[in-house]
Amino acid sequence: MKQHLWRTTLYVVQVSENLCLLLTGMKSCISCVSVQDPGDLTQPGHHYKDYVPLWTRSGKILLNSDKYMDIIESFKPDMYYLLSDGDTNVASAQKRVTKAVDNTINFVNKCLERHKNSTILQNAFVMAPITGGYCLRSRKRCLDELKDKELIDGFLIDGLHNNGPEVEFLTFAEIKDVIDLVVKDVPDNKLLSVQGCWNPVTLIKMVQKGIDVFDTSYCYIVTERSSALTFSMDKDSKMQAYEINLRQLRYADDFQPILPGCECLTCTKHSRGYIYHLVAVQELLGSLLLTIHNIHHFMKFFEKIRHCIAEGTLSELENLVTKQFDEYQDEIMQGKEKKVLNDENL
């Protein structure tokens, strides 16, 4: 399994609290457990010594290393992230950043101790968190403490954000220094992961720096706004809009697939008009069909990334996707400006 993961950019389907039970339904899929759900905003604060707050639908659960490892042992995942204090973002105060690193080092040591003595987790792939917010000194401290530890197969660059939809608009420029520092210091043979709903432009940049593993939370937030990813990955194909929003009235009588030529189940069987209807009347099938398309498109995107790495053409893909993404953002901003002007005229 380790070889399968090795230095390949793959995506990890996010899974929720009931992984161990879910796994009975997904036996053929490699499973990976993370502490927080990158698709939803993790509420900041609420710290207790030696505990990480986990927000569930039925309230807050406090996790320490032992409780966390109990859960991991019952989940029996193929791969998991050690417990971390990732509650930092670009605006975090130094005191919080320092505390996050202290906590993380502590958690990692305790979790590794449990891992070492666990027969259940013997073959599980271990990912250790590197925290420290945007403070390079703190990142370095965390890294120095953990990078040469035994049993760690890879690292997660944690603490860049508090998850949820805002991550889409974090730019690579903001995270670049942290990424550079970690990539430079981590031994070459370790897997590197970053979580969150990063947009494809930032994702490609991170891939170029050597990050290997991401997740599909971006597909989730795109689906949540009733949109479908339609950006083109091939310069010879007809340029599409970066994404289309199926709430727009113009799709009500549009009976083409979301993305003509796409081979996903949604595009082969259903039309924009039908999805517009489902979204308009808030039927469950609407987000289901959008999820199927978006995950399919995202997987194709990563396939394309791997292909481009092999061919040495990743920068071409970067340019193509960046152009479409930027044009779409401009369009949205212009739309907003127009709306503001209209509102002012009223």
């Binding site: 009500a252 009588d253 009976f255 069987k269 259903h270 039309s271 008009g273 039908y274 517009y276 209807h277 308009a280 009347v281």
Partner: peptide, 23 residues
């Protein structure tokens, strides 16, 4: 009643009926 309101008979007619509309 529901389909007559959303998406409405015009859209359904255009789609070639509900069978085609919903696949």
């Amino acid at each position: 009643y529901h389909l007559g309101t959303h998406p409405g008979p015009e859209i359904l007619e255009k789609a070639g009926g509900l069978h085609k509309f919903m696949g």
